[in-house]
């Protein structure tokens, strides 16, 4: 009996080598994409009352599922806290991590991750009560600030106060929910996170009108989807799913007109939609991979508008996230 147990243990241990090498095949075989998502951030990742997930990051995962499996509903969303998100990706619990995660050099090199692009250019800000009569983050010396653990936010906060020779009392919580709740109850003078998050969280406070977001943006926060290091094929798939949405917006293809556009004579459009060349096969996907994304999820502009922009309760200005051709930073390499 003992011998059998040992043999099984051995087999398990040596069989369990890194599962990262063949994510595309694994996802296709499984028939469902596991997506690490924020479970409580309006605009980025949040299930609604019916349990249907919505958000900018959620749309990215749906786009990957549409490209790989042909159906944007074949996604299992795994809500992750900031603190646990990287372990979940490293261990193979999720195939892609789209959870408003800032791309930094140490995350790229030390954590075994690759960032597949930027789906939202953000920056860190502060929210305070109007009653404090604070107009600038530089007046926050000696203040208590609530912050979420395991974020770049936590580090930027410490840097910013040190650089400006201000004292600071941080109160750190494991989840954004607890940090916001503590701020709302008066435990802290200010709450800090990415500016997009501030607008989203403000809507959840007891009395949103009593709070303002200060004008300073103290950091660069390029938020993007991450995959495991060492699986270049899967890395390409996620990267080009995002680029397909951006290229679609640039070429004027929307979920509504994608059918007509297939008849277009524009070679850029023909290549993206698969009526010319074999760019889908090159990625290891079907010919109509981009059509599926655009038809089922929409282009980047539609997704932005629906989740965080003018068509959403957040009403965040596109700002840096406009296409490069309209004065923003969003730029996708061409399909060819």
């Amino acid at each position: 009996m003992k011998r059998i147990v040992s043999v099984i243990a051995l087999a398990v241990m040596f069989g369990a080598t890194s599962a990262s090498a063949q994510t595309l095949k694994t996802v296709k075989d499984r028939g469902i994409l596991n997506c690490g998502s924020n479970g409580s951030l309006a605009g980025f990742g949040l299930p609604d009352a019916q349990g249907k997930w919505a958000g900018l990051d959620v749309d990215l995962c749906r786009a990957v599922a549409a490209a790989v499996l042909g159906d944007d509903k074949k996604v299992k969303f795994v809500p992750l806290s900031a603190k646990d998100r990287f372990t979940a990706l490293q261990s193979g619990e999720v195939d892609v991590l789209a959870r408003n995660t800032t791309w930094t050099s140490s995350r790229d090199t030390q954590l075994g991750l690759n960032f597949a692009g930027v789906n939202y250019y953000d920056g860190q800000g502060f929210m305070v009560r109007k009653a404090l009569k604070v107009n600038s983050a530089l007046e926050l010396g000696e203040a208590s600030v609530c912050v979420q653990q395991g974020t770049t936010t936590e580090l930027n906060l410490a840097d910013y106060f040190r650089a400006n020779k201000m004292k600071l009392k941080t109160v750190t919580f494991a989840t954004a929910n607890e940090a916001v709740k503590a701020y709302d109850s008066g435990r802290c003078d200010a709450y800090t996170t990415d500016a997009s998050g501030l607008y989203a969280e403000r809507l959840r406070l007891a009395n949103a009108a009593d709070h303002i977001v200060l004008p300073e943006i103290i950091s660069k926060e390029p938020l993007g989807p991450a995959v495991r290091h060492g699986d270049d094929q899967w890395f390409d798939v996620v990267k080009w799913s995002l680029y397909a949405m951006l290229n679609a917006e640039e070429l004027g293809i929307t979920s509504a007109n994608v059918g007509e556009m297939a008849k277009s004579d524009n070679p850029d459009i023909k290549r993206l939609l698969g009526s010319e060349g074999n760019y889908g096969e090159q990625l290891g996907l079907a010919k109509d991979w981009a059509v599926n994304i655009i038809k089922q999820v929409g282009n980047y502009g539609e997704s932005f508008d629906r989740n965080v922009g003018a068509g959403s309760p957040l009403k965040i200005d596109r700002g840096l996230n406009k296409l490069w051709s309209k004065g923003g930073l969003q730029y996708a390499p061409p399909v060819r």
Partner: peptide, 11 residues
């Protein structure tokens, strides 16, 4: 095992 683990990734 919270912040340090998250930042270094060395679980």
């Amino acid at each position: 095992t919270g912040t340090v683990l998250n930042q270094t990734g060395q679980a």
